[in-house]
Simulated assay, not measured.
Amino acid sequence: MNTLLEQLKNKRLVWQANQQNAIANTDSTGYQELDVALHGGFPQQGVIDIDSAVGIGEIRLLLPALRARQQQTQRQLVFIAAPMQINGEMFAQAGLSLEHILIIQPETPEHALWSAEQCLKSGCCHSVLLWHQQLEVAQAKRLQLAAEQGDALHLLFRHKRQLSMSLPVNLAMKLSPHAQGLSVQITKRKGGWPDNPFQVDMTKAWPTLTRVRHADNVIQLPQSKVS
């Protein structure tokens, strides 16, 4: 039994409660609530598994971090198999250089995985965003190694993923829509426990895409009936 446990530990398939070391190198997400929950921000390299529906603000959540990474380097930002039309005007208004954005639409999911791996390990890309529903543990490990080799951040989008399938990634999050932005739940994090859901307020950055928060001290009285 001890030999089996040692083998699982060596393959990073067993997490121990005394391993509470935070991720050493992180970058701010651009949102204070998220930075606090992640103890600094997104990892500088590796894989982030994101469970999110399309069009609820998942890209807006990443924009500040992607802009900061692009300003630090002239490497490419890559979108692979995106299920929506990429809005260049939005990225330009957010301060991203369109000259350093690459969009790839592979014909098959297999081609999408191959493209992501090649981009990650090339060293030419600072971030690679991939939409892919089915991912095996072995495939996730290849992407993780490729991201480490190319010093890149890989953001994997999967909606309604199977909770029983835990991938070997640096970070896993579940996103849900919220009136003031997004509800975020950290479902997996290296060196930490899963957290309860919390809200990321986007009203300052995106006022037209969020609902106005009503004052808490306003009490609505029942209307009296006029006979």
Rank of each mutant, 00 (worst) to 15 (best):
E136N: 10
V54L: 15
K174Y: 00
F42Y: 08
T108N: 10
A112I: 02
I56F: 07
T208A: 15
Q76W: 14
G191F: 01
D27V: 10
M90E: 10
C124N: 15
R142L: 03
G88Y: 09
L77E: 10
I23H: 01
A24I: 12
S28A: 15
V14H: 09
V54A: 14
Q85C: 00
A37H: 04
T29H: 12
S224I: 08
A94K: 11
Q134P: 00
I50N: 14
P194T: 02
L34A: 09
R142S: 06
P194H: 06
D27P: 04
P177F: 07
E107M: 14
R60Y: 04
P109T: 05
L175D: 02
R60S: 09
R213T: 08
S115G: 13
M202I: 12
H111N: 11
A140I: 05
V218A: 00
Q74E: 06
V36Y: 06
A82G: 01
D195K: 07
Q19K: 12
D35L: 07
A65F: 02
N87V: 03
T108P: 08
E33S: 12
I101H: 06
I219S: 04
P106Y: 11
F79H: 02
W15D: 00
K160Y: 07
L163W: 09
P83V: 05
I186S: 03
G30H: 06
G55K: 12
Q139Y: 12
G46Y: 07
N196M: 13
S224C: 10
G191A: 01
P106E: 10
D151F: 09
G123F: 11
K160A: 13
D49V: 06
R75C: 02
L77T: 07
L98V: 03
W114F: 01
G46S: 11
T108C: 06
E136I: 02
V184T: 03
G95L: 08
H39M: 02
Q139V: 13
W114C: 05
K174A: 00
E107L: 09
C124T: 14
H178G: 09
I23M: 01
